[in-house]
Design a protein around this nucleic acid. Sequence first.
DNA 1: TATTATTTAATTGTACACAATTTAATTTTA
DNA 2: TAAAATTAAATTGTGTACAATTAAATAATA
Lengths: 149, 149
Amino acid sequence: MEDQNPLLLESQICFKIYTLEREITKLYRNLLEDLDMTYPQYLVMLLLWEKDAMTVKEIGKRLFLDSGTLTPMLKRMEVNGIIERKRSAKDERSVIISLTNKGKELKEKAECIPSKLVEDISMDNAELTILNKTLTNMLYRLQGETTSN
Amino acid sequence: MEDQNPLLLESQICFKIYTLEREITKLYRNLLEDLDMTYPQYLVMLLLWEKDAMTVKEIGKRLFLDSGTLTPMLKRMEVNGIIERKRSAKDERSVIISLTNKGKELKEKAECIPSKLVEDISMDNAELTILNKTLTNMLYRLQGETTSN
DNA sequence: TATTATTTAATTGTACACAATTTAATTTTA
DNA sequence: TAAAATTAAATTGTGTACAATTAAATAATA
């Protein structure tokens, strides 16, 4: 099973992660269609459902996204009426993102998503646990390099 | 280690894959900077270095990308002088993508990339093998659903 | 305290990604 | 063979990503 040619596309784990990410986004696209949000937007909502009212900075830190991505995305979410954006009174540099009532109400409709997703993926728990561990390990190594500057 | 709240962000494998994909793209960005190409463009080049002259259709099938992504990307690669695009004489609907001399010459400069990447990731072979297997499995399940329509 | 440095978002510009539609060419079939 | 169906790219429109820069506010310090 050794790889003769390191340039051979199929042998590359990175390509699989690249492809898998898009397949997963596709799954979420279907699951989130009713909620009228995208996967990255759903990630923001997960944070806010867990703890309402966070700054853009905090959200960026948790999702590893910068303002160039978040600012326009959060504006779209504001237009859709699921979040509010307002400057912090304490520190005018910061923008606080909080849920609207509509945004809060969506939580209930989203509760079923993780289980549906696990169903779609249809892998047994043992394998998922190993995968989770390996991904965590890999992520730790890569982010150790990247976030240290 | 069981998860109380299934909506908790950190517990989600999908988020890790989403994050990992961007970390990997970041690694490639650095490695490919000299070659003046992006990661998706590099994937196209891998295919062409392996077998020159493919249609857009074939490339899309291998990379799971559609013409909405490929057409503008291939045009950029053409502008950069690494590939050529021309209509097939046999079937005017198809566009054949082939390497220019500059594109062929880049292969040599790219030979070192996989090893550098493995170095950056710095995971042992056993773990990489398991990861590869699990990713393949997961991909098989997801694409089995998605590509069947 | 006035100046400098840092921090937080926003902005600008480039490059994917993909759904949906359009256009042109080729096949199929009535 | 003419009409209908299919196929391959291109186009249109929306939504991330991210590097690099800018603007405004706050913190640090000379």
